[in-house]
Design a protein around this nucleic acid. Structure first.
Length: 306
DNA sequence: AAGACGAAAGTGGTTGA
DNA sequence: TCAACAACTTTCGTCTT
């Protein structure tokens, strides 16, 4: 097991939680998200003898959708081939090469550009490579279905990334995508809905709890507060408070309450900012949470302690 | 003076006739 | 295709700490 990060840079704790699926390392003590993008250096297979090793080892460049042609491109000849051909075949050679280049310019160049943009945005957001891969796949499919026509390449890229994030339970808000790609929120939402519908990609509504780690870390809240808010969210889900509501609203309200309970008060404004919702939404969710989950005692308790 | 609260009007999207 | 609708936002005035 290889670990780059062994100690939390914030509080020095060694109590780190590795979450490979989300590509995050979270400090259990202070809640800081230490590293959001990490590489898994483990081999996922084991070799018991040299025979098995031969079969299981894979060599060569990985095939990846982040390469525009999955890394398996073909070029029709180069000059070095040219001198070996007679007159007739020279013509054929040029014809083929011309067509190859025309096709390249039409579709593949677009893909090349788009995937470069996709990589840029995804690294800006420090997304795990699994998400980047998925997004590239989605974009490629979208191009093949001609869904990019009439839309800007960038917005489709952003939409594909958003969809990939959702599928991998690594939610990023539309605001974050918007900031990274400089495409309007509405536009991303629109293309996101469009391409997922057209490609028949099913996406479950995201779980508010998935946002907690990042929001809490941005607000420098303790791990207790984090788990408290996850707990609150779970309770809220049992009482059917969560369906139909924006997950970020729920997450931020739960976080706000949890912070109050643990005496780590943050203003509604602060929470609202990192979660990308308004104070009003937090207030509404907050009120509902208090109504249904009688958390008031707990808040009063910590008040008296002071 | 800042933060919390709540009312009212507006926005963009979904749904169902 | 249109109208009703729910969730969320913006704005603004009032209350609380």
């Amino acid at each position: 097991m290889t670990g780059f990060v062994k100690k939390c840079p914030e509080c020095g704790s060694l109590n780190l939680l590795w979450n490979k699926e989300k590509g995050e390392i979270i400090c259990k003590d202070c809640g800081l998200v230490v590293e959001e993008k990490m590489v898994d250096f483990d081999q996922e297979w084991r070799e018991f003898d040299s025979d098995a090793a031969e079969r299981k080892r894979r060599t060569g460049a990985p095939m990846s959708y982040t390469q525009f042609d999955q890394g398996l491109g073909t070029d029709v000849g180069t000059k070095s081939d040219f001198y070996r051909l007679d007159g007739k075949n020279k013509n054929k050679f040029f014809r083929l090469r011309k067509w190859q280049q025309r096709i390249s310019t039409a579709i593949e160049r677009n893909l090349k550009l788009a995937l470069a943009e996709l990589k840029r945005v995804s690294s800006y957001l420090r997304l795990p490579s699994s998400v980047e891969e998925e997004a590239s796949r989605i974009y490629t499919l979208a191009v093949q279905k001609g869904l990019v026509r009439g839309r800007s390449m960038e917005s489709v890229v952003a939409g594909a990334l958003y969809a990939a994030c959702r599928r991998h339970d690594v939610p990023r808000t539309l605001d974050e995508l918007s900031e990274a790609s400089s495409i309007e929120k509405k536009e991303i939402g629109r293309t996101y809905r469009f391409i997922t519908r057209e490609l028949g990609i099913k996406i479950l509504p995201s779980n508010p709890a998935d946002y907690i780690a990042r929001f809490a870390s941005a607000l420098k809240l303790s791990a207790e507060t984090q788990s408290k808010s996850v707990e609150i969210i779970e309770k809220a889900q049992h009482v059917e408070l969560t369906s139909g509501r924006g997950p970020t609203g729920i997450a931020s309200a739960a976080l706000y309450v949890a912070a109050l309970i643990n005496g780590e008060k943050r203003t509604q404004r602060e929470v609202a900012d990192v979660a990308g919702v308004t104070e009003v939404t937090i207030r509404n969710r907050y009120k509902e949470l208090l109504d249904k989950l009688d958390l008031e005692k707990e808040i009063k308790k910590t008040k008296k302690k002071k």
